[in-house]
Design a protein around this nucleic acid. Structure first.
Lengths: 162, 162
DNA sequence: GGTGAAACGCTCTGGTG
DNA sequence: CACCAGAGCGTTTCACC
């Protein structure tokens, strides 16, 4: 008498069951999180309180991390998007490296497989600004080198899909 | 007669003036877009209608692309984040390549400098699922090779900052 | 561009099936 | 787990400065 979620690799840590309606709600909220519960209810054929309850659950379960606004980096003065691979001696995750998160130009930081230890996604004002950021990165203890890849054009940019 | 959009840098194309209060509002909305205009007004010392007006302007100007929810890829069943560089013969931007955007595993697609032409950010269920996606990529006309970098741990992941 | 007042509509809680 | 009803409050428009 195993539940049907048993074979999903020992249960995603209390995702708490995300059914088809939930996924539709997540899709709709991804497009426009200002939709009212009343409207959402119409779109999934449920009452507003029912939708409210489901969304609240999705928040508590963590499937919805938060409600936020998506900004335009170019319009805000940072048109230069780049990916910077950072090679370090030893393990890259040092306090100095993590402190880079406070820099508004740094949007992502991952430890990764491959020749580099850390991969950064950064958005800068111009090449001068990127150079400045690279200087800051090289100042970090243990950084041996970097390899920057500049984005020429962005065809798609979004978060996790439902 | 030239419209004011003719010169594409010399003035961020009608960013329309984003002052300190706007940036503070953007910062607050980034953290929590469910904040009421009343609350935002308290935080920036303005009335609710004034805040409403500013946010509406920021939307129209495009600084705020949209209001959305941030989902947890792991909880939704895609714990494996990777970056895939795609090398192509000729220019990578083909209709087949762009069609990849319909795949929910693909979160970002940029044309980039360097050895690869296209960089993808993808989120998969597991390595088997990533392999399946790579097969799909290799099936695209003109694709010569790929190089995948797997994220071991994510220390920061967010959008453009104000 | 900001303010205050007021009407409307939505959220959100309880109680019920 | 979904629905209905209702109280409360936020949004949104208006006239005015």
């Amino acid at each position: 008498m195993h539940s049907e979620t048993d074979d999903v690799r020992l249960d995603p840590p209390r995702a708490g069951r995300v059914d088809a309606v939930d996924r539709k709600l997540l899709g709709l909220l991804l497009e426009d999180a200002t939709l009212s519960y009343a409207e959402l209810g119409r779109l999934v054929h449920l009452s507003a309180p029912a939708v409210h309850e489901r969304v609240k659950k999705l928040r508590r379960a963590g499937a919805i991390r938060r409600t936020t606004v998506e900004l335009d980096g170019t319009l805000l003065g940072r048109p230069l998007l780049s990916f910077v691979e950072v090679e370090t001696s030893g393990w890259g995750k040092t306090p100095d490296m993590l402190a880079l998160r406070a820099d508004p130009r740094v949007e992502e930081m991952h430890s990764v497989t491959g020749e580099a230890c850390v991969l950064l996604k950064v958005r800068c004002t111009d090449t001068r600004d990127l150079e400045d950021l690279l200087h800051r990165i090289y100042a970090i203890e243990g950084v041996k080198g970097t390899r920057s890849t500049v984005a020429l054009q962005t065809f798609l940019e979004r978060g996790p899909q439902p």
